[in-house]
Each structure stands twice: as structure tokens, then as C-alpha cells.
Design a protein around this nucleic acid. Sequence first.
DNA 1: CGTGCTGTTGCTAG
DNA 2: ACTAGCAACAGCAC
Length: 275
Amino acid sequence: MPELPEVETICNRLRNQILNKIVKEAFQITKHLNLRYPISKSIEDSFTNAKLLSISRRSKYIIINFDNGLSLIIHLGMSGKVLLEGDNYVYKKHDHFVLKFNDGVQLIYNDARRFGLIDYVQTQHITNYHRFTNLGAEPLSAEFSLAYFHKILLNKKQPIKLTIMDNQNIVGIGNIYASESLFASKISPLRAACSLNDDEVEMLRDKIIEILKEAIKQGGSSIKDYRNSDGEAGYFQHYFKVYGREKKECIVCEDKIIKVKQAGRASFYCPACQN
DNA sequence: CGTGCTGTTGCTAG
DNA sequence: ACTAGCAACAGCAC
């Protein structure tokens, strides 16, 4: 379930587990299968003997920085998982890419649907990385100010749900947290973005931040041992208030939750308390 | 056996 | 500016 909180949680876990490790080798297991884009062939030679310096995140991209001046970039797509295993681990179905460290630990990228991507870039040029240049504000940064949000919504006639999911505006809000934050703000996902009044804009911004932070907090506390091969490696059980609850009772007013499609994606909302 | 959905992103056509 | 549709895919519910 990789939205921003899941990716952040994975980054935090990796930071605790693999910082300062030295790469022994990097390789793609499934050379006959592509992820969303082909993995560059040169990746296999580029990280040998590199020391892992730091891990950061931009939008839903995991960025792993090494002392050789390169940054490994991982995006989980819809089904990507990052596993940490020992050297006796037997590769299984949908394992695609491996980063082996010289202490026997290995990081494995597993992705059933193969919508994810693995790439690398020179660390010093990372802000100009072509997948980052058109990204909007990080929702948990100061850049996502009330003024910024107001400006984004101004004059936009598209449904508010699409506006908050558009990475050119704000990054990291996927289909689930879009529905959840609109529910918490009592705003219908169908409303035109420009129709929100000042109070609603402020409420929605507050709820986006609050819900993402809460999910990160839960993620940090609910994963036990990241190295266990039976775990789902960074994903955790959520309890959503509106997402996926079609025809069930609204937890606030007991009306029935409705499911509609917007831009091909499911939206869930309560017709009674979201206006 | 289908059929229709699913957490992403980015592109194209209208 | 905005929308719909599509493309990449495996897995699962029905």
C-alpha cells in the first residue's frame, strides 16, 4: 500500500538497518522482465564498494545516497516491496533487483505488478532529476503553506480530489489518503477546487498533514522486525474511515458511504456529512 | 473459465 | 484548462 506514509516508514526502517553498509554487488534478477522502465545496465557496475551514506525521500521516491556520488532511486509503484534478508535467502517470485552488502545483508526489490522503477542519478544533480522537476510541494514541509494551497486551488474547476492527487500540486497524496482527508474535512470529492471557502481550504490542509503524520506514526510503531522474511516489509495495517467502505455506515452520521469513479479511480464519501 | 477491480504515474487525444 | 482513456501487470474477489 505504498503512499507517502508507507514510503516514509520504509525510509525510516532502512535508515535504522543499512546505514554505513558497503555494497558488494548490485544486480537485476529478472533481466527478461522490465519494471515500469528498464533498469539501466550500468547500474550493476556503479555501486560496487560504495558506502551507504544516507536515505531520503522525495514524493514517493526512496533516495539512497552513496559515498561514490551516486543516489539510487526506488519507486514502489502499486505493489513494490523492499525486503532485507540474509545471504541464505532464496529469491522468490517477483524479486527483481538486489543490493548485496559485504556483511551478508541484502536488500531485495520485489514487485508483482512491476509498476515500480529503479534508477540512479548523480547526487549533486538530484534536484534536476527529470522525475523530480515537475513535482509540487511536500505536504509535510513548510512549502505546503496555507498561501501555497490557496494559490493551487484558485480558479481550478476540476474536482478537489483530483487537485490534491496531482503531484504537480502536492506530492504523496494517493487515492486512499485523498478520500480520507476529504472525509475528515467534510468536503465532497466532487466539489470544484475553486469552490472551497477559506475555512475549508484551511481544514483540508490541516487534515492532509494530520492524517499523513498519523499514518507515519502508526507505521513506525506497527512493524516489528523489518528483517523477517515473512513480514510484508514496510506495509502495515490501516483502519480507514471511508476508503473501501462502500455501502457501509458512515462512522459519523450513519448514512451509507457512496463509491463513485473520478478519473477512473474509486472515490468514497459520505453524501450526508461531506458537502 | 471469465470479468472486473486494485495502492501509480505519465502520456495522448479530444 | 480540464477530462477521459490508456499503458505497463499480477492477483484476487466474484
